[in-house]
Structures are given as C-alpha cells and as structure tokens.
Design a binder for these strands. Structure first.
Lengths: 336, 336
DNA sequence: CTGAAAGCGCTTACAG
DNA sequence: CTGAAAGCGCTTACAG
C-alpha cells in the first residue's frame, strides 16, 4: 500500500496542497468546515506526513542523538529510559549510538552527527576520552550538546552529574573507617593518569585519596576485560594486596567478587568492596554490596529536559548536580 | 557555522551540482581528476550530505526502529547492543522506542512508524499483547518487520527466538527432579490467560507443566510492581505456598528473593527458584540463582542481520531458534 | 565526461 | 479564507 501524500488529499478534496497542509497544522487562516473536511479525509486515508520532507523544509528533525559508552549497565539503561520518556513526551525521536568505550568510535559517531541528522545530542563520554575536537566541531555546527555523568569540563556545554568527587571522598572515608589502609581504586579509564584526567577536567570517581595519597594504586581497566581480570588478580596475589577496593563501575566490582571467589579471599574480611553502582541485585549478592547509587533515571530526564529547553531557545541550567546515595551493606562491614 | 551544501561546493569548483553529487558517490561517469578535486574540497569544507534531502529523494532513510518493552533488563540491553553493532556496520541508524510493557504505547509507537521514518522495524512485544492490528498495518505499508524473543505467531514476519517451550519444560523438570511438587510460574503477561496466549500463538516461557497440569498456579504480573509483590507474598503466605518458582523474567526472580528474605523463607530449602535471566550477577547472588540464559547479544545480531537481508531484497530465514542454556546453581539445590 | 531540469513531499511568504 | 509558486538539498533520467 503506497502511502498517501498531501497532493492526493488535495485532489480528493478539490483543494490546493497549501490549504490542506495548513488545515492539518490547524492554521488560523483556514475555515473550520475546511479543517473538518481535511482532517476527516486524512484520518480516513490514514495520511501520515512524510517526516523527511518536513524536516528538509523546516530544517529540523525532531530527533536527538544519544551517545553512550555501554548499555549492559543498569545506570545507562535507566538513563536511556529517562531520556526516551521525556523525548517521547515532547514528540522527539531518539537515535541511539554505543561507543563501546572506544575513543575512535565516539569520534566517528560525533562526526557523523554533523550532517544535520539530529537537532541535539546527549552524550556520556568514553572513560578514556581526552580529545575534545569532535565535541567542539559539533558545537561549531550549532548543535546543542548536553553531557551526563561522564562529562568534559573543557567543553562548554550543560552537564548533568552526580557529586562524584564528594561521593568518592565519602566512599574512601567509609573504607578507611571500616579499617582499610591499602585502598585500590578501579576505574574504566585505561589511558589516562590521574593527573592527566585532572588537567583535562575529566570528572569521574576522583577522590581526594586517589589524587593525593596513593595515585599509584589506581588500576585502570579498559576494553580488554580478560586482561583487567588478570591485572586485578595479580594485584591481589602480590605483596601489595589491598584491603579495600573502590570500583567506579559495577562491572569491576563484579570482577572483584569473582576474583575473590577464585582466590578464596573473603569479602569483607580480607578485602572490603564498595562500588558506584545501580545494580538491582546489590542487596542480594553474597555478601551484599555496599554501593554509591546514582539517580540514573532522573539524570536521564534532567539531561533531556535541559536539551529540550535549549532547543526551544529557553535558557537552562549549565550544570545540574544530583546527589548520589551511599548504601552501606555487608561488603564493607568492619572486622570484629 | 552554516553547513556547506552541494551548491556551494559546485560554485567553488565551477562544476554543476549534478557532477559534484555524482563525484561524491564515486560514479563511473565522472573522471578521476574531477572526483579528486571534488573529494578534496568536500573534505576541506567538511561537507556532510543532508540525510533528510537524500532520504526524501531516495525514498529510504537508512534508519530502523527498535521497539522493546523495557530496558533495565540485561537481556534487552544485550540485544540492543547486538542490533546497534550490526546496524552501524551496515551504515544504518537506530531509533529506540520503549513501550514500558504498555499495550497502548506499543500501538501508538507502531502507528507513528507508518510515516516512512524508518526502513524497517525490529520488535519485541509487550507481555500482554494480543492485538495485532497495529502490526498488520505496518506490514501493509510494506515495512519489513522482524520479531525477537516476544513474538506474535499470528503475524507473518521473521522471528528470532529461543527454544522457550523446551527450556520451560526443562526448567520445570529440573524443579521436579529437585523435589518440587507445587510449582508456581511467574510471568509478566498480566492480561492473558494461558489458553488465550496459546490461541494467540503468543510465545514466551510456556511450558508443558503450565499448560497441562496446574494452569491456576500461574501468577501474571504486570506494570504495577508493588501489587505483584503483594500478590506473590500473599501466595507465599497461603496454604498454597509453592515449593518451586519458575520466573519468566529476572525482575520477578529478584522480587521472589526479596519476598523470601522478608518472610524468612530459605532458598532453596523452603522454595527453589529458577529464572529466565541474563543477570551477570546470577552466580554471585545469595544463594546463586539457577538460570536459563538466552543468547541475547546473538539474538540481537541475528534479528538485525535478517532485517538487513530483507532490506537488501535477499531472502532470509523465517524463523531462527537459538538455544538457551540451563545453568544450575544453588537456588534449586535438592534438599538433603 | 558534464550539465540542465525535474522531482522527492512538504512549508510558507506572497498575492488576492 | 484559499491558491500559485518557490524552495529545502539532494538524486537521477535525459540530453549532449
């Protein structure tokens, strides 16, 4: 069945294409009876305006892009849900792109977004992203850009984040008070040293501890997960074995659980574990996992709301910081 | 910065728009030196063809829609990843839509997809979907449609599924052999009775047990999760308390864990639990959860591959059934 | 090998 | 209140 277009509606109604178009958009220029006739027939013939024609003409697409590093992660899944919900309320469509934590993919995706395919972009950066050229180019195209969670401080765009620095500090203090003295931080940022990340203004679970006390204890993970497994395992077998682990993503906490099981290390007795995580099953793990949970859904909603405010040329916040919540469970229980 | 278009490139090069267009598409009609000049300038001016103009002209969009019932579920997250990966390899874009398990939203989304915005659709249906009109209308528009996991047997479209019926049987047998005699099946399909689902050809974790032995023991969940919690809890407190639970989605298994904790019921001693699930943490739960894991990522890839084969007018399978894997863990350990 | 022209299906400034 | 016309930025059949 060939889709019906304005021209056919017009012919059928003995009206001009312009009148039909205006009637469908409920223009004040059109008489009520005409509007009625037009909308009746449109419904009857199941008319659907071609979105590409109107996007071309109106020079916007009612489509946004969502670029995230991964998806099998409850935080991002919930954030997507928040974004999709707000977008659909506003009549917008959402294109999804996964970078798989790979810088090259993020750059390729950002470049392809320069084509005018979308009216705006919501992004969460790769862990190891230090390059900002692809982001700046997006802005040069006047494409509104909103960051969430993994943001770039050097690019001037609205950011929706949690109080990571503070949370990181709280988490580290929590481990300290539970008796930990050799704390290892596990992050997904493979390539960047702490000081580089600091310079780049890259925000993540940076902590005072990490920055000032034992930067050499930070293990950077990355795309090669088997390798990460080996590296953490080696650390746990070494003289340097930590008595506390702070994971910046749940994937790494899960890895630590598996490694501890393999090495027969007891959590929390031998090693205490805390993680940034939105795992629904945190309280059901053995032992239950102490987490810092981010309000993922709300962050998604907020990022989308800010983007749409920008698209409507309204002013919007430049920075929204939502509180993350420490949920203390068994994995950091103080020794007896 | 205003984006550059073909006309400006042509003016700059003293060529016609047609020639520039052809040169960029590497047409055999254009001389090599001209192609070189054109592509050099295009790169220099950062030319990006307007996708809406070419979609309008070519009458296809290199965009597909992905419609799924929920996202905070490892199965769907991994399936999305598979689909996005294949789509990007093929140069396609992916619009994502969440129905939130609501029939009305699924219908509204399907209807909006009739506009020609996408070249094809990949869908996983709401648990309680029995209506198929919106799906048939999509097909009447000649929009290629591929189902995965939650499929409609009455709509003639390719389906990517796992051997649910067989897996359900195996799971039920497994519970039986572990000593269960009062097995409750938990599903997300709120509105449909088993026989209705059978009639509709709706495929899910239907089992021989469910169909033939104790259909009255099936608890249908739905969007109101607190209510589901209460209903399961009531069941567990009743005379009818099951000694085995088979959950068709991990969300329900997690609910059961929480309820058992609240009621101080021991898994697996008082109740054994098995679930369709792709939870990464299944083996880390307390007790570890026996699962039937679906090859989610592969199912996503397969669904996308079939859709693209259809878009390229090649023939494709009508039905791909991948094996799910029973992973026996502590939650179904036989009593001593 | 290159160009002029038509057209994809809309929207909207202009005219009446 | 309605219509004719131009144009959004491409692609492609036709002509040379």
């Amino acid at each position: 069945m060939k889709p019906v277009n304005l021209k056919e509606l017009a012919r059928e109604l003995n009206l001009s294409v312009s009148t039909v178009s205006r009637a469908l958009r409920d223009s004040w220029e059109i008489s009520t009876p005409t509007k009625q006739r037009v909308s009746d027939l449109a419904r009857k013939m199941n008319f659907q305006p071609n979105p590409y024609a109107s996007s071309l003409r109106k020079r916007h697409s009612r489509t946004i892009a969502l670029v995230i590093p991964e998806i099998a992660n409850n935080f991002f899944a919930l954030a997507i849900k928040g974004i999709e919900t707000v977008a659909r309320e506003k009549g917008y469509h959402v294109l999804i792109y996964l970078t798989n934590e790979e810088v090259e993919e993020e750059i390729a995706i950002a470049n392809s977004l320069q084509s005018g395919r979308v009216d705006g972009v919501i992004m969460s950066l790769c862990g190891s992203m230090q390059d900002t050229e692809h982001l700046l180019e997006l802005q040069q195209r006047n494409l509104p850009l909103v960051f969430f969670d993994r943001v770039s401080e050097t690019v001037a765009a609205p950011k929706v984040i949690t109080n990571d620095y503070e949370s990181g500090f709280i988490a580290t203090e929590h481990l300290f008070h539970a008796g930990c003295r050799r704390i290892a931080h596990l992050t997904m940022s493979m390539d960047l040293s702490i000081s580089q990340r600091r310079q780049q203004g890259y925000t993540d679970a940076l902590t005072r501890y990490e920055l000032s006390i034992h930067p050499e204890r930070v293990i950077h993970s990355g795309r090669d997960e088997s390798n990460t497994y080996q590296r953490i395992k080696a650390l746990f077998l070494s003289e340097e074995r930590p008595d506390g682990v702070f994971a910046s993503v749940e994937k790494l906490a899960v890895l630590v659980y598996h490694i501890c099981r393999e090495l027969q290390l007891k959590i929390p007795d031998d090693i205490k574990v805390i993680s940034f995580s939105n795992l629904l099953t945190a309280s059901l793990l053995n032992p239950s996992l102490t987490t810092i949970a981010q309000p993922a859904y709300e962050m998604g909603r907020e990022a989308a709301a800010i983007l749409f405010r920008r698209l409507e040329k309204k002013t919007s916040e430049d920075r929204v910081m939502l509180p993350a919540a420490l949920e203390v469970r068994q994995s950091t229980r103080a020794g007896s």
